[in-house]
């Protein structure tokens, strides 16, 4: 079937198998930042934002995402900035080891910060419960999200 997806403000028209998942469709079309860590909804490496909310793209058929705004890590930073604050603080805090979980982790964190701009460490841990990382032990990733929350809410106050 033919579908049209909006990904990072771009339109993608693609001919897909009706049973294709959003994960498969995104990767096949060059969005390889969306990782295939388990294809079973258990690891969070395939997370994308759907209308701003984090979702496991392996658990959605691509056709379900039609009409929604899809954001991958490539589309997170503004056009004029090198990094989104979450990307910057993830490096500053040392939250990146192998980096495989990082796109999904950051996207889920951005969903959290939209819901709750100043989360506690426990709030962050609770929201990342579906984003597995085998390298870090999460300490520095939670540090990074706390730091990003502070930067983003400062920006909000400054207008």
């Amino acid at each position: 079937m033919r579908i049209t997806l909006r990904i990072n403000d771009n339109e993608l028209r693609a001919e897909i198998a009706p049973g294709a998942t959003l994960l498969e469709t995104l990767r096949a079309n060059g969005y390889t930042s969306v990782k295939d860590g388990c294809a079973n909804g258990d690891c969070g490496t395939c997370a994308v934002l759907l209308d701003g909310r984090a979702a496991a793209s392996c658990l959605l058929f691509a056709a379900q995402a039609e009409g929604k705004e899809i954001t991958t890590i490539e589309g997170l930073a503004g056009a004029d900035e090198a990094y989104h604050p979450l990307q910057q603080t993830m490096l500053d805090a040392g939250g990146v080891q192998c980096g495989y979980c990082i796109p999904g982790m950051i996207l889920t964190a951005s969903d959290l910060l939209a819901l709750n701009p100043s989360p506690t460490r426990a709030d962050i841990a609770e929201y990342l419960v579906g984003n597995l990382c085998r390298c870090t032990g999460y300490v520095k990733q939670i540090d990074a999200i706390e730091m990003a929350a502070a930067i983003l809410s400062e920006g909000a106050i400054d207008g």
């Binding site: 390889t32 930042s33 991958t72 930073a77 990094y83 990307q87 490096l91 980096g99 990082i102 796109p103």
Partner: peptide
């Protein structure tokens, strides 16, 4: 770090 946090195609697959 840059390639990893911006999701560049850096892994085998």
């Amino acid at each position: 770090g840059r390639g990893l946090v911006t999701g560049k195609p850096v892994f085998v697959d």
